[in-house]
Design a protein around this nucleic acid. Sequence first.
RNA 1: GGGGAAUUAGCUCAGCUGGCUAGAGCACCUGUUUUGCACACAGGAGGUCAUCGGUUCGAUUCCGAUAUUCUCCA
Length: 903
Amino acid sequence: MKYEYIKNTFLKFFQKKNHKIFSSFPIYLENDPSLLFINAGMNPFKDYFLGYKKPLYTRITNVQKCLRVSGKHDDLENVGYDNYHHTMFEMLGNWSFGDYSRKEAIEWAWELLTNIYNIPKEDIYVSIFIGDKEDDKLLMDNETFICWKNLISEKNIIFFGKKENFWEMGDVGPCGPCTEIHIDIRHKKDKKKLLGRYLVNKNHPKVIEIWNIVFIEFLRKNNGKLEKLDKKHIDTGMGLERLCMILQGKSSTYETDIFYPIVKDIEKSLGNIYKNEFYQNVSIRIIADHLRAIVFSICDGKIPSNNGSGYVIRKILRRAVFHVNLFLLKKEPFIFQFVPSLIKKMRIFFPELEKNNEYIQYVIKEEELSFIKVLNEGNKKIQYVINKTKEKKKHIISGETIFKLYDTYGFPLSLSKILIEKHQLKIDEKSYQKKLLEQKNRSKKSNNAVIKEDWIVVNTTKEDLLNNSVEDNFVGYFHTEIDNVFIIKYRIVKNILIKNNFYELVLSKTPFYPEGGGQIGDTGYIINNINEKISILNTKKENNTIVHYTNQLPFHITFPFKAIIDINRRKDIEKNHTSTHLLHFALRSILGNHIQQKGSYIGNEYLRFDFSHYKKLTTDELLEIGKLVQKFIFSDFHLKEKQFSSLIEAKKIASYYSSNELFNYENQKKIRVIAFGDSSELCIGTHVKNTRSIEVFQIISESSVSHGIRRIKALTSRKAIEYLKNIYHQYDSLKMIMKYPNSITKSYNYILEINKKLKQEKLKIEFHQIELLKRIFYSNSIQLNNKIRYLCDINNLLKKEKLDINIIKKTLLSLRIKIEYFISIIGFINNEKPMIFICISDKIAKMNSALYADNLILKISDYISGKYWGNHLFSTSVGKNKNGLILVKNYMDKYIIKLIKNQ
RNA sequence: GGGGAAUUAGCUCAGCUGGCUAGAGCACCUGUUUUGCACACAGGAGGUCAUCGGUUCGAUUCCGAUAUUCUCCA
């Protein structure tokens, strides 16, 4: 049975049972701060289970892309070393939202596995929740037991506790008892020796869990307690990779047709390097697995970065590169080249992959390159550390040093270890772990600083609750203030660090735009009829609920309120949002159709637009783009807003959209298309009524965000005028300073040229001065014996002429080259301070260390109460006592002559 | 969100404890020699040492802020 067939069979089976087929959601949820990635098929349906949102269908089936590398479910370190763990996997699921019960869910699962997929009944084991008398006071799941008893021998039923058979999404959220289906794929002989039931949940590679059927009945609250839900739901998940492994009779998922072609491609490209050796095979499996996780994540719009979900992607990819580098001996980007092989396999179900093929390869290659760079730099650094340690004849390298290599420069501990052990050295791992723990604690502290408590419902009927999705209660497209608003629920957000409470409010309806589509959230206030006024500081979306942020609660919380947004701020935002559309259109017109939006920020102060383009924009291009946007603004385009009930219809009208963006619209009832002139875009934001009100558009910067993505920042209206006026002011003052030239650029170039010439002139003069000074110094110097030329010139001619001290220095440095045996001491007054230079030639330095310039200066700098510094050949002293200078010559003459005589 | 680092010539980077003629390789320019695979040799140009403050007689170097980049933790 092939992968495609297995997948389609599942969906069609449940379609026949009246389930609506959904395509997979992207691998992460846009508005859920509690999750970095979808780690279970039920994540996107959380609100349906909790009754916060009413589903359009009560029966759904889908195959969801999931990633398990962080938080409660983390399998990363296992991947590659065993046969069936994966970072990314596809989860086959069927869902009931208050519709069917345990009986149907269990019977259908049985029917599908035994009748359609033809898995032998005796190989199937099921586990049932035994109850929890202590913490949660839950009874044994008898209903499930009865259902199974009718289908399967009791020998194949096993009971387990909370850890195995009570499923929870995370610390808080929907949960409930579950029944798991395990399959025994061992050899007949082995099965006879020991019954499979003794190997369930024992990490046996051939007795494995494939399907978890969860009966969602509770909400786990912040305080740790369970709250019974109004309706009972079904949430099931079966790992597609493991199912394929079983149905294809393989003992490893990597041998199924999902992974096998890629594994073979990798082996092939290795050629002679491939030795079919353990770590190489692990590395190949790691590439095959990690590549899939990364490709899907990038395609869904997550790119490697240094925090949040982007960092998870980076960690996965770098783990793969690490193995490539160490065991497959490739020192250049390698993994990216298998992207096409993966896409070829997956494109039927995920056509968006093919569209983004080049982009995905590019992102992966860049990240590989940057990690290889990190490894190279780290190698140099650790080599230095190793050499130093050996020089000092030590055997243990401090954990702090190795930790710093990792923490600051990204060089992995395991690599450090390998390299260090090669030199028969050791790392003090205790201090390394201590440092790492410190780092983790610091993060925890900052992370736990904000605690969000449970929602407190204050003023509502069930209907209000069900209706409070973004689409239903946002009225801000048409109203900036509304009456008769109720606070439905609120929660307290505590910040321990600054010891301050904030509050989040959900309103029955709202004119406040929640942050989304690049546009920032509205601010404003709500006020009740006894004039209690509460400021709204920001507005965001959380899983389809609009949340208003404030720092105080009204006393009369159940009263009706008037909700009013900061209208001037909103107007500024709207000008920026419409300008962003116009900019997008202008970019496409001038640079070409390859321009794709890669993100935007639309605030009240400025706007930012990121887009795919591979070259820096020229000044001319920027000028043209600015001009075109300005032309649109003066064209008096009216806002044309159209609403569609299907995405297909909307796509016909909208001139462009990113595939990523599309998904967020797929499950919405209404789809908006915003048009100004020829520009039309799918958009959820708010806009000006007429482009003329934007007045002025001005680009203020163009830069690179990451490879292949450029960023334009721009201002509009008042801000743009202020900016331009400020530039004009600068220009005007510059003109004034330059005495009003005809052309500023011409004059500036002229000045540059003159400056260059003057510098050359100065050099010439300096050269002459040095030549002159050389002669003077030479004539003032005396012959000490037949070799040595000695000069001690203290405060003599130099005080008459004001000379640059650099010239004196250069003169001496030039003389020490010219005269083989040369000792010079020059004293003078500079800036009212006495200074002494001592300079000797190389051959003098070789004669006697007492003649070193730095040793000589030490003898005399006390005379002028000076600080001194320098090296053997040239030294300096600067002092406070001018009168001491005269004493220097007398002392020095005697001292030097004495030294020379003793030679 | 929290920590650690980096920013020096067009590019890749040295410059350890404040002062030591701000350097190397590649690229560029000009000669000479050769016209062949990174040609060779000689010479040259190119720097607000990221920006702004502070300490100091003196800051590329020390301290602080800002910007950008890298990196780790969550």
